[in-house]
Amino acid sequence: MKGFIVSVEDNANDCALMRRIFEREMPLVKIHILEDSLTALAWFQSFKDVKNTPDLILLDIKMPKLDGLSLLKEIRKIELFTNSPIVIMSSSDQLSDRDKAYAYGANSYLEKPKSYTELKEMLPVISNYWLTLNK
């Protein structure tokens, strides 16, 4: 599996776990983790490498300063990312968040796994789907 995944995740633990899973389970996938939503927005807005846009964007939903849903809205405004696959990783099971996410243009809305074990199972599955099957 090859590709480029950008993840916006403000929790350092989760970032470390995610990084490890990618390194161990999907060594050929390039993972870029943005640990702050405002930094992330700036990164997306200044992204110029048209030929190397991310194959998948993962967004956490509950983040301080700018929450995942607002960030999603902003990313979709950037021409380069109008069609990029974006998956919301939410710890909220509130239907209103899910509906909003789809309304703002998310491609998928997933509940964030409760444990490391589940996360380890889940990340390769979604990566495989967006990077290989749905390419």
Binding site: N13, D14, A16, S115, T117
Partner: peptide
């Protein structure tokens, strides 16, 4: 609770698993 507790718990679990 679901958000704030889940996340550190995932950390504890994750690093214990590591």
């Amino acid at each position: 609770v679901s958000h704030d507790l889940r996340s550190p718990l995932r950390g504890i679990d994750g690093f214990a698993q590591i």
